[in-house]
């Protein structure tokens, strides 16, 4: 029995490697800079990660289903611009559902193309990245969008408010994570997402409607993007057309850092949340260390590639591929 339990510990280590790396990282930065692990700083990191995090929750579904979503960044710009524009035209009460409906329509279009027409998700969402960017610019006429009366609107609550002493963006992120975590791990739909991503043919042979499952993954992803756009718009009450530019890669990075496989069939919401936090703390830590902002891009990606490498190495038990 002793050997078995030892092996179990080993397998826990392999599975929770990302958590352990996270802990080591936190401890190291705490020693390097005393400001790092203060309540203020932690809140500031989580708050600034919330938008990225909300988007990553949705993309987790897409990635587990065996697909990609590179359109989330430009879709988030779209949501932000639309809701800011409609805020002054029809009021926040109607602007929010209208923006959600428009964003979900984009998600449905992608879901249709990838799910029902079985087009390659990389091509479709890469195309949509550019198409939605064009759509946003056409909608705004290329101008920045601002709310006229920034002081007098309750709309700022989603980005700037707080409840029970916790900033609202953090609350939204955590509640949405809890909800989608349950959907993914406990519902029949979640089970089907894993099956479709793990082996689509076997899922079909088990009577699972693959197209429909993929379609709803993109619906969830676009709903998360709309939520992220809402927080972004509410936080700044004004925005450029390009506010979400480049976020698609950061989102994907967080999902992969969390350990979801790009081949589909594996990953969890909890791991994605950890991935989001790691990414947030890395960037924050580097700033506190006084590194130039631009260095972040380089360091972040080095860390992501390292994480992916270590993950694969742990799975095959060697650092280098056995088949050279």
């Amino acid at each position: 029995m002793a050997t078995v339990s030892k092996q179990q510990i080993g397998s826990v280590l392999a599975k929770q490697g990302i958590l352990i790396a996270f802990a080591v990282f936190i401890v190291a930065f705490t020693f390097a800079n005393s400001k790092f692990l203060t309540v203020d700083n932690v809140f500031s990191v989580v708050r600034s990660s919330a938008i990225l995090g909300v988007m990553a929750l949705g993309v987790t579904f897409v990635v587990i289903s065996g697909n990609l979503d590179l359109s989330v960044g430009s879709m988030m710009s779209f949501s932000t611009i639309v809701v800011l524009d409609l805020h002054d035209k029809i009021g926040p009460f109607l602007a929010i559902p209208a923006m959600f409906a428009m964003t979900l329509a984009l998600g449905a279009l992608i879901g249709f193309l990838v799910g029902y027409l079985k087009l390659n998700s990389l091509i479709v969402t890469l195309g949509m990245l550019s198409a939605i960017h064009g759509l946003t610019l056409t909608y705004s006429g290329g101008k920045n969008m601002d709310i006229a009366d920034k002081e007098g609107t309750w709309f700022s609550v989603f980005g700037q408010g707080s409840a029970l002493g916790i900033p609202v963006p953090i609350l939204i992120f955590l509640l949405l994570a809890a909800f989608l975590g349950l959907v993914l791990s406990k519902t029949p739909f979640g089970r089907k997402v894993y099956a479709v991503g793990g082996n689509g043919t076997a899922a079909t042979f088990s009577g699972i409607r693959r197209a429909r499952t993929v379609f709803f993954c993109y619906i969830i992803s676009s709903a998360c993007v709309a939520t992220a756009g809402l927080i972004q718009a509410s936080r700044s009450l004004g925005s450029q057309n390009t506010v979400g530019q480049g976020l698609e890669l950061e989102v994907l990075a967080a999902v992969i850092l969390g350990g979801a496989s790009l081949m589909g069939g594996s990953g969890t919401i909890f791991k994605t949340v950890i991935g989001v936090l790691i990414l947030g703390f890395i960037q924050n830590g580097l700033l506190l260390l006084g590194l130039q902002f631009y260095v972040q891009f380089v360091v972040t990606w080095i860390i992501i590639i390292l994480a992916v490498w270590l993950d694969i190495a742990a799975k095959r038990g060697k650092l280098m591929s056995p088949i050279a």
């Binding site: 894993y194 099956a195 793990g198 082996n199 076997a202 899922a203 069939g265």
Partner: peptide, 18 residues
Amino acid sequence: KGQGLVLGMNCRDNMTLP
């Protein structure tokens, strides 16, 4: 392996999939 099972899933989940 190609049509019958999702190899990365556990035994129970495979069995109750349909």
